[in-house]
Simulated assay, not measured.
Amino acid sequence: MPVLINREGGAAKAAGDRLEAQVEAAFDAAGAQADVQMLPADGLADAIERAATEYPRIVIAGGDGTVASAAQLLTGKDVELAILPLGTLNHFARDLEIPTDLAKAAQLAAKGMAKPVDVAEVNGRRFVNNASVGLYPFMVRDREAIQDRKGWPKWLAMVPASWDAVSRLHHHRLRIDMGAGAAPIVTPLLFVGNNRYSLDAGSVGSRETVNDGKLSVYAVSHASRPALLWFGLRAALGLADRGKDFAALGDTEALTVRGHAATIEIALDGEVKQLDLPLKFKIRAGGLRVVQP
């Protein structure tokens, strides 16, 4: 069984040279023989493509960006994806209740059953969690610059990056069409989720399901800097006002976003890309088979 590890992922990088032996031991304990490959992030795609021609199940070890890279290549194929959550946040694995404990995750990867999950797509780029335009791509780009410059961990670098993004607040004038005709919006942040993300207290930012066949759309209303900071605090506590805080809110199977420029910056599962406008989102219902509890 091929186990492809992004050695640059959060937990993988922290574990260092010990990780390969730890993963092999975890699969041995699960009664499976693992072909463990420690790979740089830019070598994962080729390794996944090769493995997909030889094996019915591939194990990917890394974070959300690594899983999204696998989804880009495996969606629509008769190959099962198993996940070892070795990133920093592991949102997708957590929403599927895949254990973060290495021994338990290896046991599931070796013996568990694969079930279909949805994958979202925009202009041919697939994502498993969410896509966003506006504040968040700016925050990610700034965070990465701080990490490179100061060597800070991701969570710490995000603090000054978030403040910088709000201090340079920019609103996007867009037209969005969820199937009922294009509507103009002015928003600092457009968020498109692969299935519905909760806004409720106690479950903010999580999903009950990843196989409902819907995109969730959240466009934050035009706001001043203090109002946006206040919204961010309330949203984190599950106290967002659905009527006042959002210029657009809803579920859809397809979404088109137009703007005045030829291209736009967008974050896909935390990776910043520059894509051509219009942005054409769609959901690939049940397009990826993932091993899960």
Rank of each mutant, 00 (worst) to 15 (best):
T187A: 11
G213L: 07
P116N: 11
A236C: 08
L81Y: 05
A114I: 11
G65K: 04
G250T: 01
A15N: 10
N195S: 13
V166Y: 11
L73V: 10
D212F: 03
A26V: 00
A11D: 05
K150N: 11
D164R: 15
G134M: 03
L215M: 04
E208L: 08
A262K: 13
I266R: 00
K77H: 12
A182Q: 09
D142C: 09
P188A: 04
G181A: 03
I185S: 09
V23N: 05
L108R: 12
P40G: 06
T88E: 12
N129Y: 09
V3T: 08
M38A: 10
N123A: 10
A25Y: 04
P160C: 07
A131H: 05
R94D: 06
D245F: 04
A109S: 15
E49Y: 02
R284I: 14
P85N: 04
S132H: 08
F138R: 15
N194R: 04
N195D: 04
R126S: 09
N6M: 01
A32N: 02
A103Y: 02
R125M: 12
R225Y: 02
L288M: 12
V220D: 07
A29T: 05
F231L: 13
W155Y: 09
Q22C: 03
D118S: 14
A70P: 09
A248W: 01
A157T: 07
E80I: 04
T100N: 09
K244M: 04
G238N: 08
A68K: 14
K280Q: 13
P99W: 13
D46N: 07
K104T: 13
G250R: 01
A47P: 11
R225S: 12
T100R: 03
G151Y: 00
I98K: 08
G205Q: 09
A223R: 14
M158N: 14
D95H: 06
S221K: 10
A12T: 07
R284V: 13
E121H: 04
G202M: 08
F27A: 01
D42N: 14
G243Y: 04
L81W: 13
Q37K: 15
P188D: 05
I48N: 10
L189K: 00
Q147G: 10
V23C: 05
K244A: 15
E8Y: 02
K150T: 03
L199E: 06
Y218Q: 01
V186A: 11
E49P: 03
K111T: 12
K273Q: 13
L74H: 08
V217Y: 01
M158D: 07
E20D: 11
A32F: 08
Q292W: 00
A14W: 00
N129V: 06
S162Q: 04
V79R: 12
D142H: 14
R94S: 11
V59T: 13
H222F: 08
V210H: 12
P293K: 12
S132M: 05
P137N: 13
L199I: 09
A34P: 10
G112V: 05
V140P: 12
F27W: 00
A261C: 05
Q292I: 04
E144D: 14
S221H: 08
A247P: 00
